[in-house]
């Protein structure tokens, strides 16, 4: 029973992180029509920045905030330096066909991932390093009884919950949020309404960058930091986003938690080596049975 409970708690806290990663992917997919495979590369880079600050005796929280800001800046840079020129070029491109139009940004994002990983390797070398947690990550003891969860689990779940509430408020309760939803749903009507969709797109890259950096900061204590470790989160985040529906923010969060539980149960009851296989099976099953995901709308998949 205790094993079961701790698998649930570990899965929920993991799932919260995957939900962030999936949210980051969905934001850019909806806002800019790109599945950004460089996302966790951006997160890795800003986590390294945090790690460097901590090594120089800055407090965890200063490093935390700086990493989130740099994650946002990296997102903006990716959009301004690569994706915007790509968009401008697309119509006159030598490879102009619908299939290639959706493929080329994917290739560009892989190039960005490569650049970020190589840059991290050059700056911080390849050896793995640990990353601290702001609170204790051993089993919490209450009334002399060891709980099936850690203080860090609670911290992760709490901070992700706050982020999700803030994101929901931003989208439903602010003018900029409305502008982002409108631009994603119908760019032409949005532009005719005076919404600067270029700016809105960049903003979705920024928010996505912050969300995935947060995911990176929270997952790294349990995964160690190297230029390549966060690739796994990308895969899981992608699967979570597809499970939830690539165009649904709420769906991506649900997908994230579902994947978190899946990974946790595979870890506890089976073997960690099977995680990829389990993810692959889930991904293919969803794509065959319900390709638009749990909450996605049907027509979006073919865009």
């Amino acid at each position: 029973m205790d094993i079961f409970l701790s698998a649930i708690f570990a899965g929920t806290s993991r799932g919260a992180i995957y939900a962030l990663a999936a949210l980051g992917l969905v934001l850019v997919w909806r806002g800019a029509g790109v599945v950004n495979f460089a996302q966790m590369g951006q997160a890795m880079f800003s986590t390294y920045i945090a790690s460097t600050l901590i090594a120089q005796n800055y407090s965890y929280w200063i490093a935390f905030v700086v990493a989130l800001i740099s994650g946002g800046l990296l997102g903006a840079l990716v959009d301004l330096l690569v994706m915007r020129p790509l968009n401008r070029k697309k119509s006159s491109s030598a490879l102009d066909s619908p299939a290639m139009r959706s493929t080329i940004p994917v290739i560009a994002s892989l190039g960005i991932l490569g650049v970020l990983q190589a840059a991290a390797g050059m700056i911080w070398a390849a050896e793995e390093r640990g990353f601290p947690t702001p609170v204790n990550s051993l089993g919490l003891v209450i009334n002399g009884k060891i709980m099936p969860f850690t203080a860090f689990d609670l911290f992760v779940i709490g901070i992700v919950f706050v982020t999700l509430v803030a994101t929901t408020y931003f989208f439903k309760g602010t003018g900029m949020g409305l502008a982002m939803r409108a631009s994603a749903l119908n760019p032409e009507v949005a532009r005719l309404s005076g919404i600067r969709i270029g700016l809105v797109r960049t903003l979705s890259w920024v928010i996505s960058g912050v969300a995935s950096s947060l995911a990176g900061l929270l997952v790294t204590p349990s995964a160690n930091l190297s230029p390549y470790t966060l690739d796994l989160i990308l895969i899981i985040g992608f699967t979570a986003a597809v499970v939830g529906g690539l165009d649904s923010l709420l769906g991506s969060v649900i997908g994230g938690f579902a994947l978190g539980l899946l990974v946790s149960f595979v870890n506890v009851y089976d073997a960690p080596e099977d995680i990829f296989l389990a993810i692959l099976i889930v991904l293919i099953t969803v794509l065959i049975i319900r390709p638009q995901g749990i909450l996605g709308s049907k027509e979006v998949r073919r865009v």
């Binding site: 003018g175 409108a182 309404s193």
Partner: peptide
């Protein structure tokens, strides 16, 4: 929201 959208730029 559709109506509000048209006025966002001068909100």
């Amino acid at each position: 929201e559709n109506i509000e959208m048209g006025a966002l730029f001068r909100m």
